[in-house]
Amino acid sequence: MNKVLELLEPSAVVLNYEARDAEEIISVLGEKLREAGYVQDTFVAGALERERSMPTGLPLGGEINAAIPHTEIQHVKRAGLSLATLAREISFHNMVSPEEEVPVRLVVLMALDQPKAQVEMLMKVSELLQNECLIQKIMQAHTYEDVRDALSDL
């Protein structure tokens, strides 16, 4: 099993979600990680603050763009991943050029517990971001199992 699958919390996979904005989807995913015991009560506020000051929107050059919200390790109990596909594009800001907006439909919210400890997972997440075919499969997923099957190709 690859590290993304290993760390992806099934109850924190939200598919075809109608979010109003970036804050809403970060809150929804962060709350699911909290309920599943991965993060502190302060995690959502930490992730929202970090997104405001240093956004995580990534233009991927294809039809679908992604965002990878995350925050400081002190808000995290143990490493975990949550994932959302969005029914409609919502606006994030570009990580490297924050004045630019990026219309996003795939959100991977990451809970990282130690510096440098999750290298393998992070490398797999970047592989995912670079694989348009795999992203399309995830966008079409109806269940966690569909996402799991798609990610097993990583």
């Binding site: 990878i68 995350h70 400081e72 990580m95 990282l112 440098k116 290298v119 992070l122």
Partner: peptide, 8 residues
């Protein structure tokens, strides 16, 4: 931003 995720 955090020195632990994307920079890794």
């Amino acid at each position: 931003g955090t020195g632990i995720a994307t920079s890794t």
